[in-house]
Computed example of a mutant assay.
Amino acid sequence: MSQGKQNSRKSTSNNSPVNVNETELIREFLSNQSKELSNQKEEIELRKLNEKNAYSYGCKALEVQQQDRKESREQATSFMKYGFALTIVVLLLLSAFVGGCIYTGNIGLIVSVMKVLAYVVPSTLGGYFIGINRGRKKGRNESSDSVPYAEVEEE
């Protein structure tokens, strides 16, 4: 046991110069550390660039969405305006038809037209609104499945 202590004392108290292999190992370690630091620096730069691109993309996406909503509001307004005008024109034509039939004494023609309209109008409107609802559901499913991304150009 005393020899083990003496051997350990000899190795610690021995101030021999560092071996060439140890020097190379230390140099390699230091070069690896400097490479690692440069890699971390590049990674930080890439993260900054990624955040900058994400911010630019978000801003441009908001601008596009704002423009799109503005256009959809304008389109809805024009549909309402033209739909209202079309309804007035159809009612005026229907009134002129009914007035002409009453004036000429063809009340039977009015009754037969009303019978046809009683079947045609509800089925037409029902089919129209069913189609609209299916289109909305299909649009929702497509928009949640795939989100298109645009590339952001650096300024």
Rank of each mutant, 00 (worst) to 15 (best):
V18K: 07
N32P: 00
N14D: 10
L37W: 00
N32R: 10
L30N: 13
S38G: 02
V20E: 04
R27V: 11
N32L: 13
E22F: 02
T12E: 04
Q33R: 08
V20S: 04
E36C: 09
Q40C: 08
V18R: 06
I26T: 07
V18T: 12
T12P: 00
V18M: 10
N19L: 13
N19I: 06
E22C: 07
L30T: 08
N21W: 01
L37Q: 08
N32C: 10
N21L: 06
F29M: 11
E22T: 13
N15A: 14
N15F: 00
V20M: 03
P17V: 14
K41G: 04
S38C: 01
L25H: 08
S38I: 05
N19Y: 01
N39S: 12
I26R: 14
E28V: 04
N32D: 10
E28I: 03
N21Q: 14
T23Q: 03
E24L: 15
N21Y: 02
E42Q: 15
I26K: 09
K41F: 00
L30W: 05
L25C: 09
L30D: 05
N39C: 05
E42A: 15
N14R: 13
R27Y: 05
L30I: 12
N19R: 14
L37M: 04
E24P: 02
E22G: 07
T23R: 05
T12H: 12
I26E: 11
L25D: 10
N14P: 00
Q33E: 13
V20I: 00
N15T: 14
E24T: 10
S31P: 01
V18F: 00
P17A: 13
R27A: 14
L25P: 02
F29N: 10
N14G: 13
N39F: 03
E24Q: 10
K35N: 05
